[in-house]
Design a protein around this nucleic acid. Sequence first.
DNA 1: CATCTACAAAGAGCCACAGCTTGTG
DNA 2: GACACAAGCTGTGGCTCTTTGTAGA
Length: 403
Amino acid sequence: MGYICDFCGDQRSMVYCRSDAACLCLSCDRNVHSANALSKRHSRTLLCERCNSQPAFVRCVEEKISLCQNCDWLGHGTSTSSSTHKRQAINCYSGCPSAAELSSIWSFVLDIAAISESTCEQELGLMSINENKSVGVPPEGQNVSGSDEVTDQPALDKSLVGTSSMPESSSKPRILDQPARPANECLSKLYCPATKFPALCENDNLYDDFNMDEVDLNLENYEELFGMALSHSEELFENGGIDSLFGTKDMSAGDFSCEDAIAAEVNVMQPACSNAASADSILSTKTEPILCFTGRQAQSNLSFSGVTGDSSAGDYQDCGASSMLLMGEPPWFAPCPENSLQSANRSNAVMRYKEKKKTRMFDKKVRYASRKARADVRRRVKGRFVKAGDVYDYDPLSTTRSF
DNA sequence: CATCTACAAAGAGCCACAGCTTGTG
DNA sequence: GACACAAGCTGTGGCTCTTTGTAGA
């Protein structure tokens, strides 16, 4: 991944597609992702303009630059002057919006989009698929916004990036007023990409209980996760999510994306430390090994050295969110008198979270249901399958043992 | 401070076999 | 190119054992 479009190798890459693990220029992005219904569903986001390798997370209004979690923190998290910069959240999109449509919601894309449209797309024009149909109108109810509804509003109002995952923000990208922002205002349960969580969106009751468990089981696109990171933090902390985040070793590629994002979330949340309730979880963990960065578990989680899986996940090993946390004293740590007052509630929250965590299947995904069905009913001896007809000590279909 | 022991947690490996993939004609 | 067949590979769940790290003496 780099500065040049992975597809045409000519234009500057602006968009990162995790599904393809590719950095694409706007034109190639549209061409590639208009190829078929599945590719239209790829979730993309802008590319960090600083490192040119990670998906952008926020747009710094002052600096007029899109930044990934790492670069955002490096640029804004450590400097008191730059930390006051206003930043716009950048979220993912799907479908095949044209560069013009993108630029209408991302005004900062306009210039480059024009260039991309005028050059690269001409060369790849043969790849385009009926633009009138494909742009912004994915098949079977899917649209670029992740919303199932199609209204007479301009598609861009409800679609595309930056707005889809934050319903209350209407058509405008949400401004992250840094540094001080009450964690309670962090849109606790707003993220609702209907294309991924239709049931959750249909049922508010379900959504009330939406927490990390569901995220782990469903998220395939870290962009979605990053989008959710801002809105989901409150509930996560209430459930002791950070504890679990650093207190467990069972991490898969799928978990990695999620946990890495949450680690990044800590960075995002850190200015809100002074706010009592939600930030309490962060602060109180300072006293525990999981955030003292001395234990194996913390190291194993934060270094991501054992992560396997697709390249994009591996790429995140270098994402600064984690490395920041490895630097000893959490940079956001500050005395917080409310800490002790919340300890009881927090303990309960941790217990609830751990209890629920036990029942999780993490990234376990059964590929062949028929094999699972067979394994479920197969007889065993000490957990091992036995030949049909052999003596067994465990029969899933019967509560009694053979001997 | 170094060493040892006990303990906890996580992961690897094992097992049978239907179904899938691959190679060959 | 399409088809049939054989051989090899894959994935499934529960249990046990090994590995790794921590805490305390």
